[in-house]
Amino acid sequence: MSSMDRPEIEIRGLHKSFGDNEVLRGIDLDIGRGEVVCVIGPSGSGKSTLLRCVNLLEEPTAGQVFVGGTEVTDLDVDIDAVRRRIGMVFQQFNLFPHVTVTENLTLPQRRVLRRDKAEAFEVARRNLERVGLADKADAYPSQLSGGQQQRVAIARALSMGPEVMLFDEPTSALDPELVGEVLAVMRQLAAEGMTMMVVTHEMSFAREVADRVVFMDGGVIVEEGPAERVVGDPQQVRTRNFLMRILDPAAAEQPGDTTSERPAKEL
C-alpha cells in the first residue's frame, strides 16, 4: 500500500548546469498519480530541461528524480526499462519518417517490449483509434498534417503502456487551427486518469485540465498551485508579468513596473 501513497513523480533538489550556465537551481516537485500538472514560464526558464531530467534525456547535475517509486537518477538503474514507463511527446513530433504510421507504433513495441507481431499490431490499432487516426494507419508521417503527426506521436507513446506522460510544448509547432485536435486528445487522456506533466503556453488548457500549474522562471519554481489561482490570480509579480505577456502579446511591459526583477525581454 505504501507505494500507492507515494507520488508518481518525485523531484528532489534538482540542479542542472550546462557548463557555467546553471539552468535548474534546485527544483522540488511532487506529482500524484492521475494528476495533471502544467509547467509554464518564459523561454529559457528551464521547463524543457526539467521535463527531460524526468526521463533522463538530460542528466541532472545534482538531486534525485523518482518515477513510480524507482529512482531514475540512480546510476545502477536500468534506464531503458524506466523510460518504457514514461511516455514523452516532443514539440517537433519526432515521428520516424522512414516507416509508416502503424510501424511507428509497432517498431518500439517489437524492438523494446519484444511483443509479437499480432499483439503489436492490435495495440497500435487500438491507440490509433484512440487518437482518431485509424484511417491513417498506412500513411507515412510526411503525408500527415502537424496535428495528425502529433496525435500519432501520442499514440506511439501510449502503445508502450506508460504510467506517466511528459509533454514538451506539444502544440507550439502547430498552425493555430490544428492545436485543438491535439489538446482534445490530451484532455481525454487526462480524463482517463493518466499522470501528465505538460509544458505549455496554452493557458486555457492549463485552466481547464490542469490540477496544478507550476510557474518557473530562472531555473526555480516561482509559484505553484491550483490552475485557477496561479493563472487566474497570481501572487507573484513575475508570474503576473509573464501571464500578461502571454495573454496579450501586443501589450508592451508596463512602464514604471519597478518590481520586475528581470529586464524586460527584447522586442
Binding site: 526521463n55 518504457r84 517498431l107 507513446a157
Partner: peptide
C-alpha cells in the same frame, strides 16, 4: 535530426538499438 535518437531513447530503445533501427536506416537514405 537529434530528435530521432531522443524519441527512440524516450521509448526505451538502447543507444545501439536506436542506431540500428532508427538512425542508420535514415542515414542510408
Amino acid at each position: 535530426p537529434k530528435g530521432q535518437m531522443e524519441a527512440a531513447r524516450s521509448l526505451g530503445f538502447s543507444h545501439a538499438r536506436a542506431m540500428v533501427s532508427v538512425v542508420i536506416p535514415q542515414a542510408f537514405r
